[in-house]
C-alpha cells in the first residue's frame, strides 16, 4: 500500500514537473516570438521611413535622439525655406492615406513671402474686386463645422475652380476664420481645417494644388464684431485673396 502511494506520488510529481516544463517552454517560446515580432515591426518602421525620399536612416536616428552624431541646422535669420522635397516624416496608418477617409492634399512646398519663393507674402495678394468678386466669393460655415452645406457655396467653389484652371498663373490664399464664441486656441486649428477643406475641394475639381495656399486666422480677424447670431455667421467664413503672376 505504502509503495503504491509512493509510486502514485512520484508519478504525480513527474507529471507536475513535465507540466511546469511545458508551461515554461510555451512562455519562453511566446516571449521569443514577441521579441522577434517587435524587432520585425521596428525594422518595418525604419524600412518605411527609409522610403520617404532622400532622408537617410542615420539622419532619422539623429532626429529622434538615438544617433551618436547630431546634425543641427541653425535657425534662419530670414524666413528662407530649405526647399526640401520631403519636409516632414508622415505617419503610415492606412486610414490616413485617403482611400478610407476624406481626400486631403499636402500644402504646396513654396511658402509665399519667404526668401526664395516666387510669390509675394500676403501683402501682395488682394481681395477680389469687380467681376472677380463674383468668381471668388466668401463662403460661410455652420457652427463648429468645417464642411460647406449650402449649394450656393459649393457653386461658388466650382466657379473659383474653373477660373483657377483657366488661369494657371493666378495664385490664391484661402483664409479660414471662426466666430468669436469658440475657444481661441482651438479656433486657430479649426480655421486651418476650414481653409484646407476649401483647398481640397478646389484640387478635387482639377485645380493645381500649388496655386492654392491657406492661412488660418481662427477668431483673430473678425469680419463682424457684433455679438449676435448674424455677426457670428459672417465670421465663420473662408475668404479668397489672389495674386496674378505676370
Amino acid at each position: 500500500m505504502g509503495t503504491t502511494l509512493t509510486n502514485t506520488y512520484l508519478k504525480k510529481q513527474k507529471e507536475e514537473c513535465m507540466r511546469k516544463s511545458l508551461v515554461w517552454t510555451v512562455i519562453l517560446s511566446c516571449s521569443s516570438l514577441l521579441v522577434l515580432d517587435s524587432c520585425k515591426k521596428n525594422d518595418d518602421a525604419w524600412s518605411d521611413s527609409n522610403n520617404l525620399g532622400s532622408y537617410k536612416r542615420a539622419k532619422e536616428r539623429v532626429l529622434w535622439g538615438t544617433g551618436a552624431s547630431e546634425e543641427t541646422v541653425a535657425f534662419h535669420e530670414s524666413t528662407e525655406s530649405s526647399g526640401f522635397d520631403n519636409d516632414f516624416i508622415p505617419l503610415q496608418d492606412e486610414d490616413l492615406k485617403g482611400q478610407f477617409s476624406e481626400v486631403v492634399f499636402a500644402q504646396p512646398k513654396d511658402s509665399p513671402g519667404e526668401e526664395g519663393s516666387f510669390l509675394p507674402g500676403i501683402e501682395g495678394f488682394h481681395l477680389p474686386i469687380g467681376a472677380l468678386a463674383q468668381v471668388f466669393q466668401t463662403v460661410y460655415f455652420n457652427t463648429d463645422e468645417y464642411t460647406l452645406k449650402k449649394q450656393e457655396h459649393l457653386q461658388a467653389i466650382a466657379r473659383a475652380a474653373e477660373y483657377l484652371k483657366a488661369h494657371p498663373k493666378t495664385y490664391v490664399f484661402v483664409t479660414g476664420n471662426c466666430d468669436q464664441r469658440g475657444p481661441e486656441a482651438y479656433n486657430l486649428a479649426l480655421g486651418a481645417r476650414r481653409a484646407n477643406y476649401v483647398r481640397n475641394l478646389l484640387i478635387e475639381k482639377g485645380v493645381n494644388g500649388d496655386q492654392i495656399h491657406t492661412i488660418s486666422y481662427g477668431k483673430e480677424k473678425l469680419a463682424d464684431l457684433s455679438n449676435s447670431p448674424e455677426g457670428w455667421a459672417k465670421n465663420r467664413r473662408a475668404e479668397f485673396k489672389f495674386y496674378e503672376k505676370r
Partner: peptide, 28 residues
C-alpha cells in the same frame, strides 16, 4: 497642416543652436 489636415507634429531642437532633423507627424 502640411499634410492637408491639422495634425500634431514634433521637432527636435536645441534652442540656442537650431533644429535637428526634420519634423515628424506625431498624431493625425
Amino acid at each position: 497642416d502640411a499634410g492637408g489636415r491639422t495634425d500634431l507634429f514634433i521637432q527636435s531642437i536645441r534652442p540656442e543652436i537650431g533644429r535637428t532633423g526634420i519634423p515628424k507627424q506625431l498624431f493625425s
